[in-house]
Design a protein around this nucleic acid. Structure first.
Lengths: 249, 249
DNA sequence: CCCGACCATAAAATCGATATTCTAAGTTTT
DNA sequence: AAAACTTAGAATATCGATTTTATGGTCGGG
């Protein structure tokens, strides 16, 4: 039981303080505990999470490179803002990059790749089936399983750069979707028709159809998130989200 | 005269020590002064460039995110290695991402975008015309102008993410091409037929033809670099390029 | 003679303290 | 009254010293 649990929890490879700080902050940003556009004050984070100042600076640096945070010299760090425009941008970019990665995966993928898809979809199905109510823990497990599934789909792509970009975009996307997961109704039990079809077409190596299905899937989920975030009840924007729009000097 | 010069020199926005260190190291890696796979020892860099240890660590962190360096916890930093495989990967990824960016630029580009292309191609032509012999300075100017030109081509693309990925890949590519520029014959005077055609098709908004031309251009230049680097005289690999291939613990 | 554990050296990671820069409130001047 | 200057406060950036961890050679045992 315990090992089965561990497998669905998000990994936090803490080989060093910096890594630990990086993964922690990353998680906090993605799941919204650190709200978009919030100021990230070093000494405050220091006492909140118990990391050293240097480690935090280094972690924040990496988050800036990932596009999860922003920095201005001598002014400090902020959580990257979110907006309808950027959600659309992320969606469009995924439709370019992730779909191309899938195409190449279908073209070059090995048996090992196919097995990975089957394994990941099994995990995802199991998690979805056992998730009766969305709590922070089950949601974290589901998000991890879903990420693993999407990565498994394209893992057969031989281009390490496309894979890297895809992962980067997926993390960005998760920031948006996370805000919609907690409020949505109890999820269906088992994989969605979307996913099943995507798996079938991919394993059948029907590239065009599979790519179209993935593109549609990306579009649909993004539209739902867009509606949930920007058109229904606006979630607390946070009082500390003041950010100079600033023309630079 | 001086201002005209300044315009073609690569920018090094040194708003802070960390930024300065970052841009300096980045330049040294791209132009090969810091050889691929070379160990990056903090205290050594410290006395070589005169930056503080913390600033260097932070800069190195960012370079890792950019894929220009690698890190292993408790073991330090290395310059990212180069290989024929990765060159092919970068090339393929550019053909996916950069070409898609061009397609969107052609579709959505404004008048300002067109002007940017004309301006950048003018700069590039001027630099190429005035470059009688490849010296480190003129090469740096030419590489900057060439980069500006490629970025100008796709600047009309509305997706900030695609632009970011393209820039990232272009930097990677520059590492490879730089090793071929110094040894090649005296360049033609003025823009290549390749570039002229690419500009013409782009400004005429003939998307398919322009994308095909760009894809071919990327492929051709990559092939030339591949031949120059991996099939002719192997450049000094550097005695300090020893790197554990290492299975991780 | 070979293998494994131990110790000395060197490098990297972390922490705390100092200096610099920015922000904002209060004051003065026009 | 409005604008600009001054000054106190806070946050960031930088540097040096300490702690922790890896590495390579050596000694002792099998």
């Amino acid at each position: 039981m315990k090992s089965a649990r561990a497998a669905v929890l998000p990994p936090e490879p803490a080989g060093s303080q910096v890594e630990a700080a990086y993964w922690r902050l990353r998680q906090e940003i993605i799941c919204g505990n650190l709200a978009p556009s919030a100021k990230l004050r070093i000494d405050l984070l220091r006492q909140s999470y118990g990391f050293g100042a240097s480690a935090l600076r280094e972690a924040l640096s990496r988050l800036v490179s990932d596009g999860l945070a922003e920095a201005e010299a001598q002014r400090g760090y902020w959580v990257a803002p979110i907006s309808r425009e950027e959600l659309n941008d992320i969606t469009m970019a995924r439709q370019s990059v992730e779909v191309e990665a899938l195409r190449q995966a279908i073209r070059f993928g090995t048996l090992e790749w196919e097995s990975g898809i089957v394994a990941a979809s099994h995990s995802l199905e199991r998690v979805e089936t056992s998730m009766v109510k969305p709590t922070p823990e089950t949601v974290a497990g589901w998000e991890h399983a879903n990420r693993q599934f999407h990565m498994a789909l394209i893992a057969g792509c031989p281009s390490r750069w496309l894979l890297r970009f895809t992962a980067s975009l997926y993390d960005q996307w998760q920031r948006y979707r996370h805000r919609t997961v907690l409020r949505r109704a109890i999820p269906r039990r088992g994989l969605s028709a979307d996913h099943k079809e995507l798996i079938r077409l991919t394993l059948a190596r029907e590239a065009d159809a599979a790519c179209a299905a993935l593109s549609r899937h990306i579009e649909d989920t993004a539209r739902k998130a867009e509606a949930a975030i920007f058109e229904s009840i606006p979630i607390k924007a946070g009082p500390n989200s003041a950010r100079r729009k600033s023309g630079k000097a």
